[in-house]
Write a protein that binds this DNA or RNA. Structure first.
Length: 574
DNA sequence: GCCGTTTTCGGCCCGACTGTTTTCAGTCG
């Protein structure tokens, strides 16, 4: 059983947690956390890299020591240091770190002075009123811990889908703009980096001196609790259990603040280090030489003064964007305007809500010269999947519509199921009549990694296989991806002239950002499609674009940026 | 524990807010 990167990262993070509670050198703790992050965003299994004889110490933030330790974890799943730490400290202490307001120092203190080892112990200590009597604690701290603990037991924290965060952000931003003296509002944070999920919302504002923005903010109807309120920063919890931060910054600092609060934290640390190398100090108020501010008003100005071109928010993950920027090799990221059509759209022939004509007209309205109808094949019976007769009927209808409609071409496609044995759900003589085949898995999700991979590889041997749709099968916050060797699949796709879909549905966003980058690096074409089941879903394209940008994709990496004739050529497998 | 166009030692991002304090530690992002 190969050890997953996520397991290695978990082990390293647990180690970091216990080291921190133990009171170890904070920089050592940070080294473990950095290494965990590096491994997690690797895109390839660390165990495989080791097998191939690669030295993990070449990775950023991993030295010879950690490389050796990671090797142990990758080979055995266990880690001696963690075992030792667990012998010294109860591992349940780690769970206490999840309580806001309780950090390593305080946990160590309550552990040593009150013998608290678990969440249950903590509850008992609270009930006995022991916490508030500890040095440095007090009544208020005790009450806060009690409330956070109750909240935690009620509901585990789930990151909010970008889609949902967008709705919350839009109405709140509109509300904030109505406060007195507000000049500008910017939504920063992972929201601006277009991460698939968002933990909280960071809002920046510039305003006049006499503005009442903070009072206005905490009075927002949707506020459940005011966590802190200051002149420069306030934090609230919305009724939807969503944290929102508002920061007021002076205009001379606005660009620096936007960079700072857009993050990611890792990107910020990296550019600060770059500043330090040049004797410059970067913080949310600007870029300083000695005590003089030399940049800060706009993001571009700050980057430029650091010797860098502007870096798009979606790239700011410290995954190589700084090195690319320094070499002037940043990707020219794809935008929504580059998209010429949607290649995975459903209709009333199966489980869509709108007719083919309605979907086509809606696509035309969005400026697309083409669209592909890709309804389900028969195996997906719950969706009323099509057999050969239904496909022929649909082909006839599309032919007629193409004669009738102007300014849009409807491509004849299908979302055909990949059966358990790797064959496709419809015979070749049906598939060959279509312009494209979007292929996907809809059942038998729990096959072993190699069996699932072989299933897809066999399907790709079928010359009609064009696009592998929602490859990982994950549903964000709901369903884990199936076991699949993406590298093998991308390799085969490259050889066979198949493409991979970036499904733009906000619950899916599948493939993810790391796999987008992997496809690009391996030269496999990506298709960004919405999987729309009604006309409004065509607008999901923007989430796909966000994900694609996070994966460094440029217009040329995505085949539905091509005009129709060149797209058709690309869809021909030789 | 990592890292190096000053360094193989001595740095390691930095500021706001809270709650506890009488000047600051802890936590957070």
């Amino acid at each position: 059983m190969p050890v997953h990167n996520s397991h290695i990262a978990d082990v390293l993070n647990e180690t970091a947690d216990l080291l921190e509670i133990k009171g170890e050198n904070p920089f050592r703790v940070r080294a473990y956390r950095n290494a965990a992050r590096t491994i997690e965003s690797l895109g390839q299994a660390a165990a495989e890299l080791i097998e191939q004889g690669k030295n993990l110490a070449d990775l950023p933030g991993i030295g010879e020591d950690l490389a050796g330790k990671i090797e142990q974890i990758a080979k055995t799943g266990d880690f001696d240091l963690l075992t030792e730490l667990k012998a010294q400290l109860p591992e349940e202490l780690i769970e206490l770190l999840a309580i806001p307001g309780l950090g390593a120092k305080r946990i160590a203190q309550i552990h040593h002075q009150l013998k608290v080892s678990s969440v249950d112990d903590l509850k008992a200590a609270l009930d006995a009123g022991k916490i508030g009597r500890l040095e440095g604690f007090g009544k208020k701290t005790e009450q806060n811990i009690r409330e956070e603990l109750e909240k935690l037991s009620r509901r585990p924290p789930v990151r909010t889908l970008l889609f949902r965060a967008e709705e919350i952000a839009a109405s709140l931003a509109a509300y904030l703009k109505k406060a007195k003296g507000v000049k500008d509002i910017t939504l920063a944070g992972s929201f601006r980096r277009r991460r698939e999920t968002v933990r909280d919302l960071d809002i920046l504002a510039t305003c006049t001196k006499d503005s009442n923005i903070m009072d206005h903010f905490v009075r927002y109807d949707n506020v459940q609790k005011v966590i802190s309120q200051g002149r420069k920063r306030s934090t609230v919890m919305l009724r939807s259990d969503f944290h929102v931060d508002v920061r007021v910054v002076p205009e001379v600092s606005y660009g620096a603040a936007i960079i700072y609060f857009t993050g990611s934290k890792e990107h910020n640390i990296a550019i600060r280090k770059l500043g330090i190398q040049n004797d410059l100090k970067l913080n949310e108020y600007g870029l300083f030489k000695d005590r003089k501010r030399i940049a800060g008003k706009t993001e571009t100005e700050v980057y430029k003064t650091l010797g860098l071109p502007y870096i798009a928010p979606e790239l700011r993950e410290n995954r190589g964007e700084l090195e690319a920027a320094q070499k002037d090799r940043l990707p020219k990221l794809i935008t929504l305007e580059d998209i010429k059509g949607d290649l995975h759209v459903h209709s009333t022939y199966t489980d869509g809500r709108h007719s083919i004509e309605q979907m086509a007209r809606a696509a035309k309205k969005r400026g697309y010269p083409y669209i592909a109808i890709a309804d389900h094949s028969r195996h997906v019976s719950v969706a009323g999947g099509m057999g050969p007769d239904a496909v022929r009927k649909q082909i006839d209808e599309i032919n007629k519509l193409n004669e009738k409609l102007t300014g849009i071409t409807i491509l004849k496609g299908i979302e055909v199921d990949i059966l358990e044995d790797g064959t496709l759900d419809l015979p070749d003589d049906v598939l060959e009549k279509l312009d494209l085949c979007v292929c996907s898995l809809h059942y038998k999700f729990n096959l072993s990694k190699q069996k699932q991979t072989d299933r897809v590889l066999r399907a790709m041997d079928n010359p009609h296989f064009n696009i592998f749709a929602h490859p990982s099968g994950r549903l964000i916050n709901q369903r884990e991806p199936y076991e699949l060797d993406m590298e093998q699949i991308f390799k085969a796709a490259g050889v066979n002239g198949c493409r991979v879909e970036l499904n733009a549905h906000p619950d899916r966003l599948d493939i993810n950002d790391l796999h987008c980058k992997m496809a690009k690096d391996m030269g496999v074409g990506v298709v960004i499609s919405t999987d729309a089941h009604q006309t409004e879903h065509l607008d999901y394209m923007r989430y796909g674009i966000g994900q694609a940008r996070r994966g460094w994709l440029e217009p040329d990496d995505v085949i539905n940026t091509r005009p129709l004739d060149s797209l058709k050529r690309l869809l021909k497998r030789s």
